[in-house]
Amino acid sequence: MSYAIEVKNLSKSFYSRKKQGFWAGIFARKYNEKKAVNKLSFTIKEGERVAFIGPNGAGKSTTIKMLTSILHPTSGRARVMGMNPAEDRELLAYNIGAVFGQRSQLWQHLSPMKSFELLAAVYDIPESTFKKRLKNLVATFEIGEYIDKPVRTFSLGERMRCEIVASLLHNPKVLFLDEPTIGLDVVAKAKIRETLKELNRREGTTIILTSHDAGDIEDVCNRAIIINHGKIVIDESITKLKAQYLSRKVIRATGARGKISVYEIDTKCMPLQAALADIIKKDDLVDLTIEDPSMEEIIKDVYSKSENISCSIKLRGK
């Protein structure tokens, strides 16, 4: 299997002027350097579904923008489908699709259909191919009901589904999604996650996703690259990531009178058997469940470890 994305020592710095006196500002201007991405290296195989995650300002969006030709790297090398995003913008654009949750490709006073027709001209899609492709996407994303209504009348979920269809019309090999479920309700999120997985299964589209929503990552992706301060903290499969950070368990114990106590333990600090023995001794139990932490908690744990916060034992009741 070949690589969809190859990144080697990729860096991006932003510069802002230092506060100086009037004359110094004119004749000896000085700048502050902010390294948004710092010597990032990774590869992504074709057909992978990769979550690119990190706290705000970690460098995820900057990296994606460098991979999609929007920003030029300060140094390092990137290849997307064998092309250099900084030099082959037009050629690369035919091969990638991008959905930025906060940006729209749709025209607000027009129907999505009109925007799709424009995109067919933008991507030089022959009419018969366009009609066939659109028919499939309309069925997959279930947007037939409102495809001819003005975008300004849409809910956020309806708009986002149309945004994804817009970015898939030209059948891209790689799809970048930056916060695709931002602001959506649970049902809309589930629908988008499900269709993205279906797309990957059916067409082998490589998916690169950034999100602050752990559900997006857990449901859609099979690998996670976690970055912080512009550097990779963890690059692991979602399964391994969960296993590695599953030392925390949430135990719900239901007493005879229906009273539920919730315990949280870290098995690295206290063996599960010992914790269970403690709980069983204390309560007159009728039911007991042991749960893994959610992806959100795992990510929180990873971040805190990257900040060198030490492990602590928690046994919390009620």
């Binding site: 999609t68 654009a93 035919y94 940006r103 490709q105 991507y123």
Partner: peptide, 8 residues
């Protein structure tokens, strides 16, 4: 961004 992402 939207304009840069398109092959035109």
């Amino acid at each position: 961004d939207t304009f840069i992402l398109q092959p035109k």
